[in-house]
Amino acid sequence: MADCRRLRFRRDHRHGGQLGIEQRAAALADEVLNLQSAGSATQRVRNNLYAYAASFRSSAMWAAIDGRRYIDAKAHMREAQALAEMSGDQAIKFRIWSHAGTMYRHIGRPADAFAANDVARNLHNTRRDPMLASLGLARQAAIYGAAHNHTGARRAFEQAEDALQRADPDDYRPMWLLAFYDQAELHSLALSASLSLGDYPTAEFHAHRSLSTLRPHMRRSHAITTTRLAHAQLAQGDIEAATDTAMKVPADAATQHARVSRMLQEFGAAPRARAPRSSIAQDWTEHTRDAWKPTT
């Protein structure tokens, strides 16, 4: 159990997308499994080790999703699911299946996303804990957005918001859940849904709500939300404000985070296409050339 407690504080990853994080998380999962053969252990210890191995594999899966390496993400998912079953840990099962729902949403398979997210939402610990229920519903809202279901997205967001308000902050919860899920993440998922639905004023509202409550260390989330805000402003025709917003994305996120990089590339194409000789298009070109150039 001393090894289990030591590993508990090494399993959460707050930075997104990089291949190195994915590889390190996978290596930690292997390290945990090696402990299984390092001597005798009680069933309780073995269950904990399988749970931590599943958690590390889940972190590798998330890093691959965030980096748009979906073939690798699916491989991590299969390994994580097997380890989670051997552990019997309901919380890590939720995490893995909820990640799977997000993965399928990103690759444009909303039916599979609903199915995976429903597995997470139907686990008995999800029905007992309003915070887990809220996360499942918030991700369901994002999937409804990808499926272009306005009513479903709005209803799921409202239910997620209500569940989060009912969550007792003093209840014990897994470290990975407490590390990222709060009002800011709830509004971030609503922002994603609203963008998919083409409801850009609502998307901008959720972006500002998310940014106003984000914890300072959540740099990855801040970059993603800021980029999405720029897209929402651009879609409403406010090119100057949108460009100013996009320029606030830190250079490391703009160049090293696959999701952010792609969204900013898509964003930059719009001013150039609409008015290639305008001062705004020129400012954006200069910004990407100067602010994002590799450092030596």
Rank of each mutant, 00 (worst) to 15 (best):
M131R: 11
D199R: 02
E204G: 00
R215M: 11
Y144C: 15
T227C: 14
M218T: 00
Q140I: 05
H231Q: 12
R155N: 08
Q159H: 01
A207T: 04
L229N: 06
R220E: 13
A147I: 12
A163P: 05
L229F: 01
A156Y: 02
P130S: 04
T126Y: 04
M131P: 09
A190K: 01
L164V: 08
A133K: 07
D129W: 06
H148L: 15
L229T: 01
T227E: 06
D238M: 02
D199N: 01
A235S: 08
L197R: 07
L197H: 06
T202D: 12
L137N: 04
G198S: 05
Q233P: 08
Y181I: 03
F157K: 10
Q236K: 07
A141Q: 05
A232H: 05
E185R: 10
G152F: 09
L178N: 12
L197S: 07
M218D: 02
Q236V: 01
G145V: 00
A207V: 03
T202W: 02
A147G: 15
Q140P: 05
R220V: 11
R219S: 12
A160G: 05
H187L: 07
N122K: 05
R220K: 15
S196R: 11
A203E: 14
A163K: 09
Q165Y: 09
S221G: 10
D170I: 10
S134K: 00
F157V: 10
L234R: 02
Y172N: 10
H231F: 05
D199M: 00
P201G: 06
P169S: 10
D129T: 11
G198E: 03
Y200T: 14
A230C: 03
A184T: 08
S194L: 07
Y181L: 06
H206E: 14
F205R: 03
A163M: 05
D168L: 08
S192N: 12
R209N: 10
P169L: 12
E185P: 13
A141M: 08
A146F: 08
T226P: 01
M218K: 06
A190S: 09
H208I: 06
S192D: 12
W176C: 13
S196M: 06
Q165P: 01
T226R: 03
D238Y: 01
A156P: 05
T227H: 03
E185D: 15
L123F: 12
D238N: 12
W176S: 11
P130H: 05
E161A: 15
L186C: 12
D168N: 13
L177S: 07
H124T: 02
A223F: 04
P169Y: 13
S212K: 09
A223M: 04
A167I: 14
R220G: 14
H231A: 13
L137F: 07
R228N: 11
T213E: 13
Q183I: 02
F157L: 14
L189Q: 15
H124N: 01
R128M: 15
A179F: 09
R154G: 12
G152K: 08
L135W: 04
R173K: 14
I224P: 08
